[in-house]
Simulated scan of single mutants.
Amino acid sequence: MQLSQCKILIISNMGPKPSAPFQGKFVHNQVWALAKLNPAYHYMRWHSDSLLNKLLKYPVFLFSFIWRFVISRQRYDIAHIHFFYPTIWLALVYKFCRNRNLKIVVTCHGSDIYKYQPPSKLYRWCAKQVDQWIFASSALEQHFSLPKANSKVLAAGIHESFRQAEQVTWQDKTIDLLYVGSLDENKGMDRLLAMLPYLTDKHVVIAGSGPWLSRLQTAATEFSNVLVVGPKNSSALKQLYQQSRYLINLSRNEAFGLVMTEAMCCYTPVIASFTDGAQEQVQNGVNGVLLSATDSEQQWLANATAIIQRLWQLPPEQYQRLQQQARTSAEPYLLKNIAEQLETVYQRVVL
């Protein structure tokens, strides 16, 4: 079967909510990049932080899927799942109710593997139904311990608007350190708070939302050099990246980390803690700096702040080389390139 004849359904358990208005945006962008294939798209529309939502969001997600796609005349040939478990169950419901020949493609993003170790019997059984695995990073693929006949490492991709980013010189930048992302413990917000007393000579901007927002806002009242700006769309982030000397990423677990890719595409080197995602993208001393793990958080903090201070001693030409290498390493992850690779994957599974 030719890909042009296939009907594709993309399913994601991610979606925006009041505390994270851009959650799952990278999947939306990928669907947009695949527009010529006219894929159908089902994502978690009812999403909030309320207890009721936490209890019922997956049943609502499933029943709305059944209403939209199982009780429908349209027949789909490929289901592409973003976030393997438990999202895979929607594709399996469709497969066993509507099309036994459905091909299932799964993109794993991180915690759909990290949080399910060791895998349960149901997890293992679901994995056997997958025709094509996609992993956000090679390190994430290595964490997946189950057999996989077909697999590929492929990031979700960054918006095409970043292709037109401009290189701004060190002297013309107005932000020293930029953080972008969820404001929670896994993303290292406790680490960032601990760093602030040592960064009083740096202009620090924090863009994002999450459970640590109020603590960071309180810190911003104590440190005049810190600005918390909340979540931003791609256009606003592009401006922030271009104006920042470095992006800082302090995650404890990160499967890939698209904000690092976005920053580097805007000629902004990355300072990152050692995670799967940082290891995949950041070449120490080439396009950024990796902060190695230590035995204690206190020692890690001392090492990290010392490294950051040394980065401000780099000669201008060395910083420019970091900028150029950052841009070069990020360009393959632009959405147009990712979409072309996905089309190849889809064509292969239906042959």
Rank of each mutant, 00 (worst) to 15 (best):
309 Q>A: 15
229 V>R: 04
257 G>M: 05
120 S>L: 09
136 A>P: 01
105 V>N: 15
198 Y>I: 01
45 R>P: 00
215 R>A: 13
93 V>N: 08
50 S>C: 07
324 Q>V: 03
77 D>V: 08
5 Q>G: 09
245 R>D: 04
334 L>V: 07
294 T>K: 12
186 N>Y: 06
157 G>Y: 11
277 G>A: 05
204 V>A: 01
160 E>D: 15
135 F>S: 12
61 F>L: 02
328 T>M: 05
334 L>R: 05
21 P>L: 14
212 W>C: 05
15 G>L: 03
141 E>A: 12
32 W>R: 14
286 V>A: 14
185 E>K: 07
266 C>L: 12
304 A>Q: 08
59 P>R: 06
28 H>A: 12
347 Q>V: 12
164 Q>N: 11
137 S>Q: 09
155 A>C: 05
100 R>I: 03
163 R>A: 15
171 Q>C: 13
255 A>C: 03
123 Y>K: 04
173 K>T: 05
163 R>D: 10
327 R>H: 14
223 F>A: 02
202 K>N: 02
117 Q>L: 15
81 I>F: 06
159 H>Q: 14
233 N>E: 13
259 V>N: 12
192 L>M: 08
141 E>R: 14
177 L>H: 06
170 W>M: 05
64 S>V: 00
318 Q>M: 08
340 E>Q: 15
240 L>H: 11
224 S>T: 13
314 L>Q: 14
112 D>P: 11
239 Q>W: 01
212 W>Q: 09
132 Q>S: 09
103 K>M: 04
277 G>Q: 07
248 I>N: 02
184 D>P: 03
275 T>S: 02
73 R>Y: 00
165 A>H: 01
198 Y>Q: 14
30 Q>N: 06
345 V>Y: 03
198 Y>T: 10
244 S>V: 04
344 T>C: 07
314 L>A: 09
212 W>K: 08
221 T>K: 11
202 K>L: 01
104 I>D: 06
77 D>W: 08
88 I>Y: 09
41 Y>F: 15
345 V>D: 01
151 S>K: 13
153 V>Y: 10
205 V>C: 01
157 G>C: 09
142 Q>Y: 08
219 A>Y: 07
236 A>S: 15
348 R>V: 00
310 R>H: 14
317 E>C: 05
350 V>A: 05
30 Q>A: 02
318 Q>H: 10
5 Q>D: 15
211 P>F: 04
157 G>Q: 11
84 F>T: 09
286 V>M: 14
297 E>N: 13
291 L>T: 11
147 P>M: 09
47 H>F: 07
66 I>D: 02
206 I>D: 02
133 W>P: 08
207 A>N: 06
266 C>F: 03
54 K>N: 07
275 T>I: 11
336 K>G: 10
197 P>V: 03
179 Y>E: 00
36 K>T: 09
187 K>L: 06
54 K>T: 03
168 V>A: 04
231 P>F: 06
338 I>L: 07
234 S>N: 15
2 Q>F: 06
12 S>Q: 00
227 L>N: 13
239 Q>T: 14
308 I>Q: 03
120 S>I: 10
39 P>T: 13
15 G>N: 07
7 K>M: 00
62 L>M: 07
13 N>F: 00
230 G>A: 03
104 I>F: 05
65 F>L: 08
81 I>V: 15
325 Q>C: 11
106 V>C: 05
246 Y>L: 03
43 Y>T: 10
58 Y>G: 01
292 S>V: 07
189 M>Y: 04
216 L>D: 01
276 D>C: 06
71 I>D: 00
37 L>D: 13
46 W>L: 11
202 K>Q: 04
36 K>C: 03
